[in-house]
Design a protein around this nucleic acid. Structure first.
Lengths: 337, 337
DNA sequence: CACAGATGTGCACACGTGTTCACATACCGT
DNA sequence: ACGGTATGTGAACACGTGTGCACATCTGTG
């Protein structure tokens, strides 16, 4: 057993060579002891494990990844959490990645305030990158392709961009819930919109307008919000001020709908007798007992599973053709329609 | 200009050596061109940048980190998001880390379902690890110390564990808001508790009981929840069924309080005339117009700043003594007390 | 005995970087 | 002329791993 080679006096991480010296074996033996299927004599192996445990040795995953192995890092570009459904999605995605032995490197916000861009993350030899549709660009796809980093996009279809994608059919989901309202005899529709330029926002609006047009109707009132409760509340107050005969308020997402419910209550309106309210996404708040919101599901679990599946497919076969998976939203009938 | 060395036929990341070959320079020149202060002749430098841009070259951050540099990875162990305040905190922490040039490696859930432990993350040469108090253990501290990984704990004080910590004075905050209720003449207190065994849960309960004891009062009713809206709603229904003269419902967190508000409304109770309701944390929902919840702030920004400051201090001086920062909560008076 | 397979071994190499070092050139001041 | 400084250069080394390779021993089979 070699003398303690002054580990404590050094701030460096414990290395395999240090363990080898202490255990009186070669570095190869240490490496083999920590590699599945590696040949090391049982007694030697035991000694290596003991010394390693005593000194807190763990192989350095990043050094190992240089060897043509994978880093196991997956960048998750989560956007700005404007829609709370996104934060629920992100955390579930991160959990699922962990379950697959992958480590999410989180980019929680991509804007100028954070001084960070997705491209900064490409300095890491990522196994993959998962990114919201809104942050996609053709140049980013090219960059990732050149670096051999698989890219999976969620939340929107990609047009002529070649990458894997998972998205929810926003327009179709919106049509479904408008059909429910029409079937209940609602005719005077108001819309609490999300911020324009966001694909989900725009597609949900399109689905609403198309469904109304097919029924020979037009929107009576529209007010924009930023996908949050406060904006939904204010937009609804303005809408009811402008048109007192609104009988259905369709909202671009659940938080807007929760805000609408709050505003209607403050106005003494009865939901759904006086006016229906619907949301989109089936976020957790939609299921709270005081709301029991009728909404359209943008189910997190199937989307997360699809993303993970696409990653694994890509890691198995980098040259596979790109694939797009669509999630079909379903109406969740509760108490507000 | 050397011939294209078959980059496209290889799935490997573009390397500095490949760029050097293409640009007709040494690898050292490429390295210097991408290192601040590195000496490279201007014309050569330009050529290197052009070739690099054409082939999507970026230095591999992980290879570079082997050179005694830092990985810039910070593990963020975020727990299970039982309390929605935690997801807000985590998101903001990750943004702040990005701003400091650090990359959060997110462990979104540490339980058996994910098959992941914090120790798995220690295989990466992390610059630091930020962890919720509930996931702390002395053995983890020892392990990190041996690996030279600084650890910052948030959410609870550490007892005799040697690590940096930031936490909110839960008990003191609770006393403050109970004093507000006492000053309003409330005498019949009910408590919607959080899950036992969570430090914040237990401390907030202790603060409540102590404040009441000092006023010569005892809790009239207590029901447990899991820090969420649904449990707050159900607990409040049970409480009002059990004791019809409750005049103040103190909740362990804001989501429980939001649930309590919903339950009281369904019972036709007027808040705050009939009964006061208070929360804890000042999560975003506390500020929604239909709730306008009186609560205690557990301010995210100062906590995040403190965590980042502790990380930077540790990175500057690994041997610095451990430090504990306390965040003083403040009462946020709104409409429910 | 020869061969094949299993187990075991340490040396040397590769992975992709940044840095050190010795050498080179140019310029300025003493 | 000499010394110091700035700029520039490529070879070699270091970082911390996993792997390939040649060699060694043992066992079983034909």
């Amino acid at each position: 057993m070699a003398k303690d080679p002054d580990i404590k006096a050094r701030s460096r991480r414990v290395t395999a060579q240090m363990i080898a010296d202490l255990a009186g074996v070669s570095r190869s033996a240490v490496s083999r002891a920590f590699t599945k299927g590696g040949y090391v004599e049982a007694e030697k192996r035991q000694r290596i494990y003991e010394v390693a445990a005593e000194h807190g040795y763990q192989p350095n995953a990043l050094a190992a990844s240089l060897q043509g192995g994978r880093s196991q890092l997956v960048a998750v570009v989560a956007g700005d959490f404007r829609n709370t459904h996104d934060s629920e999605f992100t955390f579930k995605l991160c959990t699922a990645l962990n379950k697959s032995g992958l480590w999410p490197l989180l980019i929680a916000s991509e804007d100028e305030a954070s001084g960070i861009t997705v491209e900064d993350a490409l300095r890491f030899p990522l196994d993959a990158i998962v990114i919201r549709g809104g942050s996609m660009s053709a140049s980013l796809v090219t960059r990732c392709s050149k670096l051999g980093i698989p890219m999976i996009c969620y939340g929107r279809p990609l047009g002529n961009i070649e990458a894997d994608a998972v998205f929810c059919q926003n327009a179709a989901g919106m049509r479904k819930i408008v059909d429910v309202l029409l079937a209940r005899g609602r005719r005077n529709f108001g819309f609490v919109a999300g911020p324009p330029g966001y694909h989900s926002s725009d597609e949900r609006r399109k689905g609403l307008l198309d469904a109304l047009a097919d029924a020979g109707l037009a929107l009576r009132s529209e007010h924009q919000g930023d996908f949050n409760v406060n904006d939904g509340y204010a937009a609804t107050l303005r809408m009811m001020d402008e048109c007192t005969d609104i009988d259905a308020i369709v909202c671009a997402n659940d938080a807007s709908a929760v805000g609408a419910l709050g505003a209607l209550q403050s106005l003494g309106k009865n939901v759904p007798n006086d006016v229906s309210v619907t949301g989109f996404d089936d976020a957790e708040m939609a299921r709270w007992p005081m709301f029991s919101l009728t909404t359209v599901s943008n189910p997190i679990s199937p989307t997360v599973e699809a993303v993970v599946r696409l990653i694994e497919r890509r890691l198995s076969d980098l040259g596979a053709s790109s694939q797009t998976l669509e999630i079909v939203p379903e109406v969740q009938l509760r108490q507000t329609h």
